[in-house]
Amino acid sequence: MKNIFAIGLDIGGSHITAGVIAVNEMKLIEVSLYKESFDSNLQADQVMDIWERVIRTSWKNSGVEEFVGISVCMPGPFDYANGICWIKGQTKYEHFYGLDVRKLIRDRLNLSDDFPVLFENDADCFGKGEVFKNAENRSRKVMAVTLGTGLGACFIDKAEAITTGNKVPTDGELYNSPYKDSIAEDYVSARGLIAHYQQLSGRKIDSGLEIFNLATAGDEIASEAFRNLGEDLAVIVAPWLKTFEAECFIIGGKIANASVFFLTAFEEKLKKQGCEVPVLISSDNEIAALLGATSLIYKEYFNQNESAFLY
């Protein structure tokens, strides 16, 4: 079979990563991996300048001449079928509300109106990608979360994202689940970590990275802030791990890189919630997201379910 290639994009609140995927093998062309950090609250045309540069750089570095589609991991709220952004009031993509992101990408790259540009929830992409990476998970029920500027969640059963039914929260989302005096994302995210630290220290910190650096340097308050986040995460996910009957739980996102500071607290609290399940920390969140996104292209191009090529 002739090799076909697609561009995968992992788009977050403060970064974009692009990579060219050999779809037949579901493998990343490593030299194509390219990432830039940026302020997603810039005007839309400025953000698109950055996206275009990243996509074209990845494409050029890959050495691939043609690709059959673009698949995008995108945070919500977002109309994934129609490519419309509905993010508002989340300190990211404030100027994208109501925009047709599919058209923006096609226009920037001079693509035809029928060229496949597909979108998927970023957490679902991450979860699917982790399943592709680990053969043992391909027949399991897997719950995964991404911890970063927001809280993403996905529920995967035999490589399919489950978003309906009484075994998962509404739309498979956790970020807006009621928790304490607010919602889950206000406690388990970068802003949640910042709030934990401020409550403990009385000091306002601008970023989660600063708290990570403090914890790394031995600051006990910063370490406690991470532990509090871990405990909150356990309380939030435990009921759904039980209801979904998850056989594996995976943590990804930028905050997962600081798991040394919260994993023990998370696992201990999880056990107290009466829930014992293997917990994994993703070692390459972005590659997992790119692979998960590209599964949409495989499905589109070969017109079959992902499960057909997983076994």
Rank of each mutant, 00 (worst) to 15 (best):
N228Y: 01
Q198F: 04
K88F: 03
F5W: 10
F38K: 01
A161D: 00
F119C: 02
D232I: 11
H196L: 00
I4N: 07
T164M: 04
K242H: 12
L310Q: 10
I211R: 14
S37Y: 04
S201F: 10
E160H: 03
F266Y: 13
Y298M: 15
T57W: 06
S283F: 01
G13N: 11
E65D: 11
V20R: 07
V47K: 07
G12C: 03
E247C: 06
W51N: 02
D45Q: 13
N24G: 15
F67H: 05
L280V: 06
F249K: 07
V131L: 04
V142K: 01
D186M: 10
R102N: 11
A161C: 10
D114M: 07
G89W: 04
F249Q: 00
A308V: 13
G83S: 09
G76F: 02
E185V: 13
G253W: 07
G63H: 09
E247V: 07
C85W: 09
Q199D: 03
L310C: 08
A234S: 12
I250N: 08
M26N: 09
L296R: 14
T146H: 05
A161R: 00
L99Y: 02
Y34C: 15
L310N: 01
I84T: 10
K271C: 12
G274K: 14
R53Q: 11
V54A: 12
H15Y: 12
Q43E: 11
L200Q: 12
G83P: 02
N228R: 12
A135R: 15
A308M: 08
Q198I: 03
C73Y: 03
E160K: 15
F115E: 00
V23T: 06
F155K: 00
E276N: 07
M143N: 00
V64M: 02
G129W: 00
A293P: 05
V72A: 05
R227T: 02
G152T: 02
I87C: 09
I16H: 00
S201M: 06
L290V: 05
M26V: 02
D107T: 15
P77L: 09
C154I: 01
F67A: 05
S295M: 11
S283T: 06
G98L: 08
L109C: 12
G208Q: 09
A246F: 01
I4A: 04
I211A: 05
F302V: 12
D122Q: 02
R203D: 03
A238I: 14
F244D: 00
E247I: 12
K271S: 12
E224A: 13
N61H: 14
G252I: 01
E65G: 06
K133Y: 04
V237S: 11
N134C: 04
Q198M: 10
E52I: 08
R53H: 05
Y187G: 09
A81V: 08
L229G: 02
I281A: 10
G208K: 07
I211M: 06
L233E: 13
V23M: 08
F262Y: 13
